[in-house]
Simulated assay, not measured.
Amino acid sequence: MSVSIIPEHKKLSFRYGEHRYDCALLKGQFSARKIVIKVHPDCRVVVAAPEDAELKDIQIALTKRGRWIYEQVREFRKLQEHALPRQYVSGESHHYLGKQYLLKVEEQPEATQIVKMTRGRLEVSVRQKSPEKIRALLDEWYKARAKETFAKRLTAMLEQALWVSERPSIRVLTMKTQWGSCSPKGLITLNPHLVKASRECIDYVILHELCHIAEHNHSERFYRLMGQVMPNWEKTKEKLDEMAFEIIS
């Protein structure tokens, strides 16, 4: 099982005035005891509801929150209109461990091509300025930092995961739809983009996968175990969901 960047869900839709919205319905997840509606920065409308919630009650909840959903989606779309694709030039903002750093690109024809962090900046030295080369260097830098960070956080999280008898192996692999996954044999795969999120978010994903070593599905026992080792995991997941669009792009 895995931690999805966009969780698997059922689909439903509703109308507010002339506007039609497609929604992701998550039932019985995250110990939901009431119907909760959230609009994400990428304009996804997500509804979390108890397993026994009836569809008519979910539709009523959406209708009652129609104006709020409309306003949230409108504001996020305005932000997207002004969000330019990354150009990989000096002055751009990039994330690392939950913080933002300004990118500084220096062209040095004779120097070693390298990325380093200094005084709140990510400095990239290249022989010739090229967005493709700068992106490749940054990707390599993030993967190297990810391997170091994930190994350290795994060590810390294993102190809580008392059910794990042997240290699992970690593989770092860029994935479009998942933050992490755990194979039936206990191999944990983590997305290097995750290193752009806070340590708390990294710990959440690692703990999620460690819980799958004990329970390889999203059962009630699985969520009970998650609650024991990370009582605030739902809020942490929300934080990760909210910044997913920004750190993956």
Rank of each mutant, 00 (worst) to 15 (best):
L207F: 03
L158T: 01
E107W: 04
L190E: 06
E140M: 11
E209M: 06
K196V: 00
R74S: 11
C211E: 05
K10T: 14
Y204C: 01
V115W: 02
R67Q: 13
H95I: 01
K56Q: 13
K185N: 02
Q87E: 15
A136S: 11
E8K: 08
G66C: 07
E166T: 14
K147R: 15
R121E: 14
Q128P: 01
R77W: 00
R167C: 06
Y16K: 09
D42W: 05
S130E: 06
E71M: 10
Y101H: 06
V46M: 09
L137Y: 04
R171S: 11
H193R: 07
A61T: 06
V115P: 00
E107N: 02
S130H: 03
E8T: 11
E107D: 10
G227F: 03
E166V: 14
A53E: 04
I247E: 02
H19N: 13
Y223N: 10
E75G: 01
M117I: 12
D139V: 13
E215Y: 12
V124F: 02
G28M: 01
G186T: 02
Q72C: 04
V195W: 00
R224A: 15
I248W: 10
K10R: 15
I213C: 00
W141S: 03
V89F: 08
N191V: 09
G17P: 02
M1I: 11
D57P: 15
F222S: 01
R135P: 06
G66T: 07
P184E: 05
L103P: 06
L173D: 06
V195C: 04
R153A: 03
